[in-house]
Design a protein around this nucleic acid. Structure first.
Lengths: 326, 326
DNA sequence: TATTATGGTGAAAGCGATTTCAATGACAGG
DNA sequence: CCTGTCATTGAAATCGCTTTCACCATAATA
């Protein structure tokens, strides 16, 4: 492996000069030229490990996600990757498989060492999370949850759910049921359910608490909850779900219990999943710019890192949403 | 930041001793105990950067994928992540956004520096790819394509497509059409189309070359190709697609042009997408263990890395498949 | 008793960059 | 001619760890 010293010798300068050439310090034109040629000739690339040791910066960003194989998360990740690549960083990906304590684990692992910053695609934020975030040595941006005092990029789930509930209230003939997710997930659990309820109420409808179930983000959990709801009460004629994935499960339950195609106007979701849109022609759902949130969060993070001292970068950013098919 | 020297002083030993303690070298019981306490007391964690510089190993694995936000790839990635986490490595993720030259770029970037090994989720393998792979300084495992002389984990797309074609041939009343992907993608493009054709032929059916179209992995490309096929020839009564995503698009086209629900028994895919399965009740498709291929490839790679000199690890592994809904 | 092994040990030499520092020569102003 | 800037320069000091090496006990062998 050719190292800086070799280049320096070939160019007849000191390695300090080569370093300066590479990093834009004082260097005369002719030496710059000689160094440039020596580098080309040898095919030298500088050791990021030595550089990292010396400078303390690795140009690595840790990205913590709850589950990479989900449409929303993988879109967010795509957005993060886009920006990172463009701005000369690389992504260290950690998949927690929906285990919030593994989030803490990675938070610890990352901040202790190799990364310059962290993007956390958050689900539930416990006190322990808050503490970990506060005491984080490197800058960190959250996606998906709004946390006081932390930099975050999120959607207004309450508002979106409210609008969805209000819009849907009028066109349901029977009872409305709801399949949510853990309320510890403030955004997808608590806010969506509460917003939806409030929206219904605002339009004069009501969500019977006995018709609320809790799924776990998976298609199958939506399917099972919907089957149960549909069998327990024949008057249930609409099921709102906290995610499109669970809505897909609910559609299947409708197919089986109420006849094929019955679900399409009787199920709503969140997330505007592309498959669902194509295959059903579009159920009522909320479109979020997932890719955009990845992009914005990453830009925010890197601005704070690269920013000239101005710690201006880290703030909180609420992105818009769009009701679909209502 | 507390460093090794501090721990050593506190424990009254040399830093060499601490290093040996950490890495399992000769150390007496009582010193080990003192060091252990000193580490707990100070909360010392060793600098992976210094370690990397000294040992030349970063415990990082580069993962190159064509598109993170796709079901198959994100499942593969989940499998890779599982194994990496379990075995003490971390994942450096590079998303090429379906640009094969960016694959080369990352191959270069990775091998030059920070990673100990590479997993490449491959699409097309050009000569340039082959050269890059051969001259790779670190071990590399491919997923999804079979390349002579390289370590790879793949599925037998030809065989699977053959079986699918043979099974489907009997039950189609009109003409059969095919929507594939670029033939430069040996596995998903070339092999699947050829296998499917051969399977049809083996069962006495035939694929009219004029009814072959080429999509680009996206739902929309499947949709457009299918619309065109269905309008150009009213006798087309079955469309086989090279991926489930494109099949979803084709289903939509059937819905629009032939009546809702018409596509379900008239479209086939590859990949056994969960959404598609739930929403249609299951179209003919091929199930691949994507997560498994990530797991196997990563185990293979890490075995080669951790293996005690025995370069036995890197080989080629063909995984099985399963016909669904035929 | 003389001689090997064998478990333990710390000083010191790197790994390959960046960065401080003192020194240089050139050049403008006084 | 002297002095003060100013652009350039290379030697040398890190960054924090691993690993060789020489060396010391002590136990095992001859």
């Amino acid at each position: 492996m050719v190292k800086m010293k070799d280049v320096a010798e070939l160019a007849g300068v000191s390695s300090a000069a080569v370093s300066r050439y590479l990093n834009g310090g004082y260097i005369s034109a002719d030496k710059a030229e000689r160094i440039k040629q020596a580098i080309e000739l040898t095919g030298y690339v500088r050791s990021s490990q030595a550089r990292a040791l010396r400078t303390g910066s690795t140009k690595l960003i840790g990205v913590i996600v709850p589950k990479i194989n989900s449409e929303s998360v993988s879109r967010i990740t795509a957005g993060i990757g886009q920006v990172l690549g463009r701005r000369g960083y690389q992504m260290l990906l950690a998949n927690t498989d929906n285990a919030p304590d593994r989030e803490l684990e990675y938070l610890d692992l990352f901040q202790n060492h190799p990364v310059d910053g962290i993007v956390l695609v958050a689900t539930m934020i416990t006190d322990e999370h808050r503490r970990a975030i506060d005491s984080c040595r490197v800058p960190i941006v959250l996606i998906g949850q709004h946390v006081e005092g932390a930099a975050c990029v999120y959607h207004d789930d309450y508002e979106a759910a409210f609008e969805l509930g209000r819009a849907l209230a009028g066109r349901v003939d029977g009872k409305i049921a709801y399949i949510g997710v853990s309320e510890e997930d403030r955004a997808a659990g608590f806010d969506r359910r509460r917003g939806f309820e409030a929206g219904l109420r605002a339009a004069g409808a009501v969500l019977d608490p006995s018709l609320i179930r809790q799924g776990s983000f998976t298609l199958d959990s939506g399917y099972r909850a919907a089957r149960e709801l549909l069998s327990v009460d024949p008057d249930v004629s609409f099921i709102a779900c906290a995610t499109d994935t669970m809505a897909a499960g609910a559609l299947r339950a409708f197919d089986e219990l109420r006849g094929v195609g019955e679900g399409v106007r009787r199920v709503s979701g969140f997330g505007d999943n592309a498959f669902l849109r194509a295959l059903t022609g579009g159920i009522p759902t909320v479109h979020y710019g997932y890719l955009t949130s990845g992009v914005e969060a990453t830009n925010m993070l890197l601005d704070a890192l690269d920013g000239e001292e101005g710690e201006s970068g880290l703030r909180t950013l609420k992105l818009g949403h769009q009701l679909m098919n209502v």
